[in-house]
Computed example of a mutant assay.
Amino acid sequence: MVETTKASAPHIHNATTFSDLVDWGDQPDSLEGQSHSSGRLVFKGPNNQPESGIWVCTPGRWRLSIPRDEFCHFVAGRAVYRSDEGEVIEVEPGTVVMFPGGWTGECTVIETMRNIYMLV
């Protein structure tokens, strides 16, 4: 199957195992370990809205702030998100999370995770 992000309906077949990823570098705002990110952009609209793609991240812990609403479907790995208000969200394959814009806290990746996301 051909993967194309240039089609009238951008798509990637087998997104859960797709391996032609781009190196996105070390995760910023590291608190522990050195998480490294890679991924593949599927679509980015005008003014970068919406943006959708695949994100893979290796173990580590860092601070994060979600700039806009972000829908995440975790398809591999394990991680724990902790909001600044104390909420704990444990993710594993099959977990879906809708982070509202402005959500702040930290993420600890326990086992390399893969996330199919849409940032709006």
Rank of each mutant, 00 (worst) to 15 (best):
Y117H: 08
E90I: 10
D20E: 13
S8Y: 00
R82H: 13
S8M: 03
G94C: 01
I66N: 04
F99D: 06
E51R: 12
T95C: 02
N14C: 02
T5Q: 02
T58V: 04
P100I: 02
G86V: 13
S38E: 15
S83W: 10
V120P: 15
V109K: 14
M1P: 12
W24R: 07
I12T: 04
T16H: 06
S8N: 04
M118Y: 05
A79K: 08
C107M: 15
P59L: 07
G94P: 01
T58M: 13
V97Y: 09
Q27M: 12
W62F: 15
P28T: 01
R78L: 03
G105R: 10
E92Q: 12
S8T: 04
P59C: 08
L31T: 03
M113R: 06
L31H: 06
Q49L: 12
T108Q: 15
E90W: 04
V96E: 10
V42C: 11
L64T: 04
W62G: 11
I66Q: 07
E87D: 15
E70M: 09
D26H: 03
V109N: 13
L119P: 08
K44Q: 15
I66L: 04
H73A: 11
G94V: 01
V2C: 00
V42N: 09
I54T: 04
I110T: 15
R114W: 04
L64Q: 08
G86Y: 13
A79L: 11
V42S: 09
D26L: 11
V88P: 09
S52F: 12
I89K: 10
W55T: 08
F18S: 02
S38H: 07
I12L: 15
P93G: 01
P100N: 06
W55L: 15
G45L: 07
P46N: 12
P67M: 06
H36D: 06
V75G: 04
E3I: 00
E106G: 12
V97N: 07
D23N: 10
G45N: 10
P10Q: 00
V109L: 12
N47R: 09
P67Y: 05
G45K: 09
V120E: 15
F43R: 09
S35F: 06
P46M: 08
L31W: 07
M113Q: 08
Q49I: 14
I54E: 05
R82A: 09
G94Y: 01
I54A: 06
E85F: 13
D26W: 00
W62I: 00
P10I: 00
W103D: 08
